[in-house]
Nucleic acid binder design. Structure first.
Lengths: 359, 359
DNA sequence: TACTGAGATGTAAACGGTTACAGCGGCAAT
DNA sequence: ATTGCCGCTGTAACCGTTTACATCTCAGTA
């Protein structure tokens, strides 16, 4: 075992209280005493024991991130954002992936007491009730991309509806009126909102509305590949395909290429999320950009401020605007540019954060 | 605050010991008593306090993963593998990214005492000495993709040298004798080994050896893009480019396309890692496959067994073999296949784990 | 000289669990 | 009736910290 505070105290000829004061910079300690204690601590390789400290201070300097799964670049980007602010504030990160299993989510939530100071939950199909009844009392929570009904949880969402609407409008403006959609999983909240945006746009712009144009998917490349093949069989064939995330767009692109269909020559293709590699596709992917890392960073900031306020703060719901990024995959403008460039047209106008207190 | 074990005990008319026994399934408890306790616990929403438990049992059921950064699909894949076995064994995951800063690594390591039962370290340029002098005594460690000198740490490495060698040999077998290499960061251990494999292959196969053929890179798409542009300016121009990871290969592919160079028509292109999207590129990327998720899973298995052995076990060094995956980006075979297929030829022969005790 | 206050340090009680040990009642074997 | 054992439960020590409070020293001041 490692050395304890008692051993350091004994070795330095002081009491544990003094050693503690030195390590926490609290209360007065004579310079000479401090020096001696630090020297002994160094020699004994003393490090304070996390659990012991947490037990008495009731804070862990750790927050937990509950994710649906750990696939792909969307996940790594959001983690990167979360980590950057956590790191900057001296907080550690506990990650857990509930594979969308109700019982697991429950177990995970309960296991968090005494381990973390707060929770970021990003399970697009967890329901608020499961949360409320299994949450350690008064633990700050932030819901990311989750359905929030009337419940009083802090939350951040992407403007999925607005982004999808803007993309369809963009495609329509390029002359497409038969636009296929590759959907996400039916239970996924993001997916449902994007679908709603598509439908609203199709209706309001009087585009072809055909149930066949809505193709099943689940946000994976594989699903995009299958959907791409199916899209090519539709009659009449759509002139554009809107995949509701980039991973599916990439899979779809592959399917189209494989079948000899040119993009954007024969069909236009668009994605959603604007993950980092999207710009490196050939052709570069037109997408709805959501600043994934920034989303994560923002979530962590909000959570940490709840922690500081000891959870006694006004709950808020925030919607992060999206931006349409036009690249080559839809033809029209932006067909040939270096991968650094390519942001044009705001889907949400103000470019800042839109927020408000839920009714 | 949440309910404590004492409140449950009082409410159920028993002692804390009995409540504890119920929650840990240890020692005999009358069925009726157990039922009553569980009922009270449910009503009070009692959950054991993690820190308190850790303090006395001296185990946290948590392991920490120290990563260099959180970019891209390699990271998410390795995390996925780690998580799957951690999850299966009831362990939690603490992630930390040291941005390769010496002082930060030191601080992180020290902060781990009393927080975790073990550590997976994947900082390709951390040195063993920094580790040894800052590690809480007797904490199980597993080094992933790190340079291991004589030190007695458990470790797992990829057969970087063998994989790179095999790829160059493959390219040579397709008739290329002027092969450019896109390098990783000079300090990165994986990158150095891959470079060494390339050089050894170039020498042993008597291919063009030209310092200009070794182009700088840092494992990012951006670097691959720049390297691709530079490669096209070389005279005589290489007929193949071997990017030492897939992210750079993707960036490079973009640069080549942009310049109007056909792949594999004008140049062959190959990557390393075989990240999931590699097969969805057009053309699909020939790469050195390393089963990233499996690597993570294996690391976690080894670490957990060290934890169980209380760190009193024989230290081992393991090298994970690589597999050459031939797809369309180099011409020759495998030019047209569905994204599911495409694994051929073993770079390391046995297909299993190669392991041994370091000298 | 006695008093005051501030600085430096020590004492001991928490924090919320686990677990060795002891106690107790009942039953079977002696 | 005594003994021994087993199943069930309670008591209290302990894990490694932090911190309120008490104590002590000493300089400055009235």
């Amino acid at each position: 075992m490692s050395a304890t505070i008692k051993e350091v105290a004994r070795e330095a000829g002081v009491s544990v209280a003094t050693v503690s004061r030195v390590f926490n910079d609290k209360g007065p300690v004579r310079t000479e005493t401090r020096r001696r204690i630090l020297e002994v601590a160094e020699r004994l390789r003393y490090t304070p024991h996390g659990a012991a400290r947490s037990l008495i201070t009731n804070e862990t300097h750790t927050v937990s991130v509950l994710l649906p799964d750990l696939h792909g670049e969307f996940f790594s980007e959001v983690m990167r954002g979360i980590d950057s602010t956590a790191h900057g504030s001296g907080y550690h990160l506990l990650v857990a992936s509930s594979h969308n299993d109700r019982a697991e989510i429950k177990a995970l939530l309960r296991a968090m007491r005494g381990r973390v100071d707060g929770l970021i939950i990003m399970s697009p199909d967890v329901d608020a009730h499961t949360l409320e009844s299994n949450l350690p009392e008064s633990l700050p929570i932030l819901l990311l991309n989750c359905l929030v009904d009337g419940t009083s949880f802090d939350s951040i969402n992407i403007d999925n509806h607005g982004g999808a609407f803007a993309m369809v409008r963009h495609l329509a403006s390029l002359g497409h009126h038969r636009i296929a959609l590759i959907k996400g999983a039916p239970k996924n909240y993001d997916a449902r909102e994007r679908l709603r945006g598509y439908r609203d746009a199709v209706a309001s712009l009087a585009l072809d509305a055909d149930a066949e144009l809505e193709i099943e998917g689940d946000f994976s490349e594989e699903a995009g590949y299958r959907a791409g093949r199916r899209a090519l069989l539709l009659a009449p064939r759509p002139s554009a395909i809107f995949a509701t995330n980039d991973a599916m767009a990439i899979g779809c692109l592959y399917a189209l290429r494989e079948a000899g269909a040119g993009v954007p020559g024969d069909l236009a293709l668009a994605g959603f999320d604007d993950i980092p590699i999207a710009r490196y596709m050939t052709p570069p992917l037109t997408s709805v950009s959501v600043s994934i890392a920034e989303l994560g960073a923002r979530a962590m900031q909000r959570l940490l401020s709840s922690v500081k306020a000891r959870n006694a703060h006004q709950r808020r719901h925030e919607t992060l605007p999206t931006t349409l990024v036009v690249r080559g995959s839809c033809g029209g403008a932006g067909a040939a540019q270096a991968p650094g460039a390519g942001r044009a047209g705001g889907a949400a106008g103000d470019g800042g954060w839109r927020s408000g207190v839920p009714p």
